[in-house]
Write a protein that binds this DNA or RNA. Structure first.
Length: 426
RNA sequence: GUGGAUGUAGCUCAAUGGUAGAGCGCCUGACUGUGGAUCAGGUGGUUGAGGGUUCGACCCCCUUCAUCCACCCCA
């Protein structure tokens, strides 16, 4: 094999079967987003590094971005996330946009990290945000969007769940344990790591953070209290609306979900595979200060992001992806009987395309067996044969590649016949 | 950035330091107007790359590259 240039670390090639998955995710995200009236947007893939400076001290920019100098000497980065671009788009037209505003986006992002399961350096992400309204019902809408997406892909409530918590509720509860406000973010971080550490190490970490044994005990009881959300009127309203939106079976309260990012201000949520085999599928929450932080007027917002990698793994695990055989989008194979009859085959293929079929023409007059094998391996549904016998009667032979049954019929009837076959399977 | 594994045929994997193999796939034929099944035959490799030790290296040592996993962080 001649020397090949490997793909850049952390990137991947999308072969047809991979592309089919990516397209499926995009189309599902689109359907779900649009069903709630969200509009599609996008920002540039290249941004100035300054755009991300507003979120000061961000590891995301410092260590995890692809940064390079352009020919004019400016520092350019491949966007590591959408939110700053989105915040800028809002700030630029803040006075003329219509609120509440519902935007969604799907596109590539880049982060310079060590690749591993469910994480690469180039990845696709669904972003969706409801901007300009601060209500528990808005939070519920985003949670319902996430749940609707899961349902749309075929995942069940036994396989995946949206886990919901609220940072203001946690603030109140921490204060009740006499945990001072300045320790809040540290304790949030402690909570975030609950499932990632052994109980012993976690206890040690808690002591390190400065919790007393009484506080630690209180925190532990808090984290297993599934009824804690009744203390939050916000969450009570949110959960009530989630029921009304018909996705209650996909959603539950989870006091240990807190999110790593500091900018969340209220309700937060994540989607998890219930086996815990993968990292989180999706994450989001309310962030009421972010637009202001990038130079706009204060504007409340709630949203989430879902990367394409983990959800693909989850869908594969639960057999929610189309079979390889179903990937070909041309169900009809037009075979070529002989060099002399090739034009007749191509002509019939053209007529069928005009009728709305996707038709593959075999490009040479190979042995019919070889042509059928090709159609079979490509997952095609029917093969058409135009030989001397058929042509003499103005017929065409139609072979069902699944059953193997074949029949000859007038050319004028073939379109309707194929509709009958493919219509049932698509 | 830290730590741990793994690189052998197109794919999944074998092979005490002593002639690199199997299954699947692929090609051809049995089948001159017909795929999947079966059978027969065939194609298959600079053992990731480079160096070292050895009479002899897929195997041991060093370097390097790649991939995977965990940490970190997050989608």
């Amino acid at each position: 094999m001649p020397t090949t240039i490997n793909p850049i670390k952390g990137t991947r090639d999308y072969y047809p079967e991979d592309m089919a998955v990516r397209t499926l995710l995009y189309q599902t995200a689109r359907e779900v987003s649009e069903s709630f009236g969200y509009q599609e947007i996008d920002g540039p893939f290249l941004e100035s590094i300054d755009l991300y400076a507003a979120k000061s001290g961000e590891e995301l920019v410092k260590d995890q971005s692809f940064v390079f100098e352009d020919r004019g000497g400016d520092l350019i980065t491949l966007r590591p996330e959408l939110t700053p671009s989105l915040a800028r788009m809002v700030a630029q037209r803040q006075k003329q946009l219509v609120y509440p505003m519902r935007w969604w986006s799907w596109g590539p992002f880049w982060r310079y990290e060590r690749p591993q399961k469910g994480r690469s350096r180039e990845f696709f992400q669904w972003n969706i945000d409801l901007i300009g309204v601060d209500s528990p019902e808005a939070d519920a809408e985003l949670i319902a969007l996430a749940a609707s997406f899961l349902r749309e892909t075929g995942l069940t409530p036994n396989q995946v769940q949206v886990l919901v918590n609220n940072r203001r509720l946690m603030d109140t509860e921490l204060l009740a344990l006499d945990i001072p406000a300045e320790k809040r973010l540290q304790v949030f971080r402690l909570i975030d790591r609950r499932d990632k550490m052994s109980p012993v190490n976690w206890d040690a970490y808690a002591v390190e953070v400065g919790l007393t044994s009484r506080q630690l005990y209180g925190l532990k009881s808090m984290l297993v209290d599934e009824g804690l959300w009744h203390k939050s009127s916000e969450l009570e309203r949110t959960f009530q609306v989630i029921e009304a939106l018909g996705v209650g079976d996909y959603v539950r309260f989870a006091p240990h979900v807190i999110r790593g990012l500091d900018y969340y201000t209220g309700t937060v949520f994540e989607v998890w595979d219930l086996d815990g085999e993968f990292r989180s599928i999706l994450g989001g929450g309310r962030y009421d200060s972010l637009v202001e932080a990038v130079g706009g007027d204060p504007l409340p917002a709630v949203g989430f992001a879902m990367g394409g990698s983990v959800i693909s793994l989850v869908l594969k695990k639960y057999d929610c992806l189309p079979a390889d055989e179903a990937i070909i989008n041309a169900p009809v194979l037009m075979t070529v009987f002989s060099q002399e009859l090739l034009p007749a085959s191509f002509k019939l293929a053209t007529e069928l395309r005009s009728s709305g079929f996707n038709v593959v023409c075999y490009p040479i007059a190979a042995k019919l067996g070889k042509q059928f094998k090709f159609g079979d391996r490509m997952g095609m549904r029917v093969a058409l044969i135009l030989g001397p016998d058929e042509l003499s009667q103005n017929h065409v032979a139609v072979k069902d590649l699944l059953s193997g049954e074949q029949q000859s019929m007038p050319i004028a009837e073939v379109a309707e016949f194929i509709w009958g076959l493919t219509g049932n399977t698509c």
